[in-house]
C-alpha cells in the first residue's frame, strides 16, 4: 500500500514539475495554458489519489469519510479546471491575442 501511495505521489510530482517547466518555457499565452490545465487535472488527480489511499490505509469510518472528501476535491477540480481554462482562452480571444506561429510574422498583430 505504501508503495502504491509513493508511486502515485511521485507520478503527481513529475507531472507537476513538467507542467511548471511547460508554463515557463512555452512560447505564448495559449500554449502556456495547455500545461497549466494539465497540472490541475492530472497532477492533482495523482497526488489526491495518493492522499486518499493514504487515509484509506487505516480502515475505519472516519478514514473512509476523509478519503471520500479528498475524492470530492477531485470531482470539483475536474469540473472547474477545464472551465477556467476555457474562460481564460475566451478572454485571450477577446483581447485580440493571436496564436503564436513559427514564422513569427504575426507577432506584430
Amino acid at each position: 500500500m505504501d508503495l502504491l501511495v509513493t508511486f502515485f505521489l511521485v507520478c503527481g510530482l513529475v507531472i507537476f514539475t513538467g507542467g511548471a517547466v511547460g508554463i515557463l518555457r512555452f512560447p505564448d499565452f495559449y500554449s502556456r495554458l495547455h500545461p497549466a490545465g494539465k497540472l490541475d487535472t492530472m497532477g492533482l488527480f495523482m497526488s489526491m489519489i495518493a492522499a486518499a489511499l493514504f487515509t484509506f490505509k487505516a480502515f475505519s469510518l472516519d478514514a473512509v469519510l476523509t478519503g471520500l472528501k479528498i475524492l470530492l476535491i477531485l470531482v470539483f477540480v475536474f469540473i472547474t479546471s477545464p472551465t477556467a481554462t476555457h474562460a481564460i482562452v475566451d478572454a485571450g480571444v477577446r483581447a485580440n491575442l493571436m496564436p503564436w506561429t513559427k514564422t513569427e510574422k504575426r507577432d506584430a498583430a
Binding site: 469540473i79 472547474t80 472551465t83 474562460a87 475566451d90
Partner: peptide, 9 residues
Amino acid sequence: PHDLIIRAT
C-alpha cells in the same frame, strides 16, 4: 461571448 460552458458549470 456565448458562454454556455461557463454558465452551465
